[in-house]
């Protein structure tokens, strides 16, 4: 503590004028730094972290949902062997959209670009989990009788697909961490992180896992 004092004194003799007001600028700079970083962290960083991508076709879930008999499972079905089909393939779409059914420009684009060229639509999947995560839809939807909305939200009522925000570091969708950068969630579908899985597993008493910790075993999801 002695040395800085000596330092201040010695420099004070040279820059006597500034010495008096030294406390002011130091605090000012501290506050400036504080504000700048808060701005960066809260305002600039979140949009920088994600790139915005448009879905190849703006799909209308609400419209389709009104036309099918079996809800989500009409298109997002379980195969005979119990595995989940995920995002529909072109072959399914062609059953109705061999030719455009209406004049919607998105449908026309779909038929022209994908159906006619027999190209699969490169849909961007909001809920795609990292490859190290094992997830079985059958276990949750068939065995545990969970609703699709519990994790995916009311996407079936949407008339338009929101932009896909891709994390520039991980490559996964923003929907995994959640829209809220703080990670605050109001609905069960707002986030799809490991804690969200664990929360529900704990609440539902499903622990099917570790003997040692009596908690969910790592190997339930990380095979």
């Amino acid at each position: 503590m002695e040395e800085p004092k000596a330092n201040v004194t010695s420099s004070g003799s040279e820059h006597g004028e500034k010495e008096d007001g030294a406390g002011g600028p130091i605090i000012l700079f501290f506050i400036l730094g504080l504000i700048a970083s808060l701005l960066i962290g809260w305002v600039a960083f979140p949009p920088l972290l994600y790139s915005q991508k448009k879905q190849p076709i703006d799909f209308n879930h609400a419209l389709h949902n009104g036309l099918v008999d079996n809800g989500c499972e009409s298109c997002h079905f379980f195969r005979e062997d119990g595995t989940y089909s995920g995002v529909p393939k072109l072959a399914q779409c062609i059953e109705c959209h061999e030719e455009p059914n209406g004049e919607d420009p998105e449908e026309v684009k779909f038929v022209e670009e994908y159906v006619k060229n027999e190209r699969e639509v490169p849909w961007l999947v909001y809920s795609r989990q990292p490859a190290c995560v094992f997830f079985s839809h059958a276990a949750h939807v068939k065995n545990a009788q969970m609703k699709c909305e519990s994790c995916h939200g009311p996407i079936g009522e949407s008339e338009s697909l929101k932009p896909y925000q891709q994390n520039r570091i991980t490559g996964y969708s923003r929907d995994i961490w959640g829209e809220n950068i703080l990670g605050v969630k109001r609905h069960s579908w707002d986030r799809m992180k490991m804690d969200d899985c664990a929360e529900c597993h704990a609440a539902s008493g499903f622990s099917g896992g570790s003997v040692q910790t009596e908690k969910d075993g790592c190997l339930v999801c990380h095979k």
Partner: peptide, 24 residues
Amino acid sequence: DRRSFLSFVIGGAAGTALTPLPWK
């Protein structure tokens, strides 16, 4: 000066810790 700069950096560090940036 050097002190102002350091205090800016310290303020920045303190502020950053209060944002989601490092954790995210």
